[in-house]
């Protein structure tokens, strides 16, 4: 899931809680569809990190597929 330019999960720290993010199950939902996926999240506040590669890659493809008529 990561690319050479992406930080590893252990590098990510929640700016609000100042604790390292951990991989965890997240329900990503959009336009009524729910996708259980594993993403880095803050164990304290639940804040989720989405990498740029994912946001502009598969996640965008899924969003556009849902938005299309």
């Amino acid at each position: 899931m990561t690319t050479p330019n992406d930080p590893t999960v252990s590098d990510l720290v929640c700016a609000r809680c100042d604790v390292p993010l951990e991989m965890g199950k997240v329900n990503a939902s959009y336009l009524g569809q729910v996708f259980p996926v594993d993403l880095p999240r803050c164990p304290s506040c639940g804040f989720v990190y989405v990498s740029e590669e994912l946001a502009y890659g598969r996640m965008l493809n899924v969003e556009q597929a849902l938005e299309d008529k």
């Binding site: 336009l31 009524g32 569809q33 989405v50 994912l54 946001a55 502009y56 996640m59 965008l60 969003e63 556009q64 597929a65 849902l66 938005e67 299309d68 008529k69």
Partner: peptide
């Protein structure tokens, strides 16, 4: 899947 209703074409993603 819901038809396109809100937002149309996203400027970005995620």
């Amino acid at each position: 899947e819901a038809p396109a209703s809100c937002c149309g074409v996203p400027a970005g993603a995620g």
